[in-house]
């Protein structure tokens, strides 16, 4: 167990390094720089100003040199300043990390609360009208273009009905209730987009368990429906669900860019996007580092859960899919 964990962590470390280097290198392949845009839109600036600023930020040096400089400093715990925000990288990232968690945790919890019972019931009544409805709903959630759906939600609930605020960010001096009110719409939107995946997995896993011989035996022995579902099926079906949740950490962490943009809620997705396009290497690298680490940790967690919940499975053989 410990050896497995140690090996996985070492591998993850290597992957992390490769990802970081790769993104640094790729960002170096993006032509131009926001400084050029500044010169374009401000008559007071001259191209000489642009060249001087680029040199000041070290943008005229070869990419390998810059990566090495960054790496040695980062390893000493100095992640530098964000160029876009003029603040230390962690000071920029910390509130955004919190923002992401504020959005992500309710979404994951809500998704589980919805997906578990509905998935179970759908599997129990497989191919009935209830199952069809659940299927249709979960596929609808997966299939809708996120931007389009988010705007529809805003038009519906904020503009037409005027029940909820249109953006996630409350006024500067808002209280807790106001904060919560502003979060309802984005959380609901993300949950609807997200729950389908969980639901599909929950249903498939429950279905598979229901087909097992011991479940049939239990049914034949007259075990009550509720007891069967909660005791036998649920326990077995939770396994793949836990896996998929752990695996979805990464995409929830950095993949909610669209929702963050529409609801004007600065989280990790938006920050990474802005930093990449703004050539803010320091910020982008730490953003990528966090996003990749979250995914990798999610993967390890998924494997561990698999091992813990179902000791029959050899840890090395566990792979996603199927």
């Amino acid at each position: 167990m410990a050896a497995f964990l140690a090996r996985r962590l070492a591998q993850s470390g290597l992957i992390l390094f490769i990802v970081i280097f790769l993104t640094y290198w790729l960002m170096g392949l993006m032509p131009g720089d926001p400084i050029d845009l500044m010169v374009q839109s401000n008559p007071d600036l001259t191209p000489a100003d642009a060249a001087r600023l680029k040199a000041l930020y070290g943008l005229d040096q070869p990419i390998i040199t810059r990566f090495w400089n960054w790496l040695t400093q980062a390893l000493q715990g100095d992640f530098g300043y964000s160029r876009l925000f003029g603040q230390p990288v962690w000071e920029v990232l910390w509130p955004r990390l919190v923002n992401t968690l504020i959005l992500m945790l309710p979404v994951v919890l809500l998704s589980i609360v919805i997906a578990v019972p509905l998935g179970l019931l759908a599997a129990r009544k497989a191919y009935g009208w209830f199952d069809y409805t659940v299927n249709l709903a979960s596929f609808a959630g997966i299939s809708v273009p996120p931007f389009w759906f988010a705007i529809l939600m805003i038009i519906g609930f904020a503009v037409t009905l005027n029940w909820l605020p249109a953006s996630a960010a409350p006024p500067g001096d808002a209280g807790l209730m106001d904060h919560l009110r502003h979060l309802i719409l984005p959380v609901a939107t993300l949950t609807i987009l997200n729950v389908g995946t969980y639901l599909r997995f929950m249903r498939a896993a429950s279905l598979q368990t229901l087909r097992q011989d011991y479940v049939r035996t239990a049914l034949a022995k007259g075990v009550s429906e509720t007891r069967l579902l909660t005791h036998h099926v649920l326990r077995n079906a939770l396994l793949p669900l836990v896996t998929i949740i752990a695996l979805s950490f990464g995409s929830l962490f950095s993949g909610t860019l669209i929702i963050e943009t529409i609801f004007a809620w600065p989280g990790m997705g938006k920050t990474i996007y802005d930093s990449v396009l703004g050539n803010d290497y320091n910020l982008a690298m730490v953003g990528f580092l966090l996003a990749t680490a979250t995914t990798l940790l999610g993967n390890i967690l998924a494997d561990l859960c698999y091992g813990l919940l179902d000791p029959r499975i050899e840890l090395e053989e566990v792979k996603l899919g199927g």
């Binding site: 038009i155 904020a158 005027n162 249109a166 953006s167 004007a264």
Partner: peptide, 20 residues
């Protein structure tokens, strides 16, 4: 005076209509 940044212009107009 509060200045609020909303980058997506469709969302910006929606915020105006909803009174935010």
């Amino acid at each position: 005076i509060e200045i609020r940044a909303i980058e997506n212009t469709a969302a910006l107009t929606a915020n105006l209509l909803s009174g935010d």
